[in-house]
Amino acid sequence: MPQSLNRLKESASQTAGPYVHIGLTPNFAEIGGVYADDLGSRMLTGDASGERITIKGRIFDGTGTPLKDALVEIWQPDAAGLFNSPSEMRGSADPHFTGFGRCATDMANGEFVFETIKPGPVPYPDGRMQAPHVTLWIVARGINIGLHTRMYFSDEEKANADDPLLNRIEHRHRVATLIGKRDGDVVTFDIHLQGDDETVFLDI
């Protein structure tokens, strides 16, 4: 027998369930007085530099019905492409921008909304530049393991055309599922869990 690798196995995921708000956005769930604010409810903590934008959208199930009990988290760099993270070795990110947002989808219409800034570009591991993008992570009742995806920007056509990840998508018509539609300061990004327009989800 060779030596053992002595690795542990990652804990198995379980659904966030219908009551995810109690734990992750208790103020939204009307459990007041425990935490001052819901984590990730403000991404700008001061005069962050960069272009202020609003990202909004809905998540649709296989019948086209919006999920009203989902939770979305986003993670992105600042306007200069730096992450507010201890693992960021390339420089110091804007101290007034957390890069992390969390939003429960609206219980009436299913919409999520993030007030953020447009991210700067970040290099791919081989040194090529990626197009500006926001990382999303989606959990909900009926989702057994959180879904990773990305939103790119419709006003970055040239950068999107050269993006290493977008270029890995074999069925080219599916690239459009990762492009947020920009109209002024608002970027709309709808997510489809199934169907012809199923969003490209990532094993990353």
Partner: peptide
């Protein structure tokens, strides 16, 4: 799923 190596994101 689209399997891809981690990036800085």
């Amino acid at each position: 799923l689209l399997s891809i190596n981690n990036t800085l994101s």
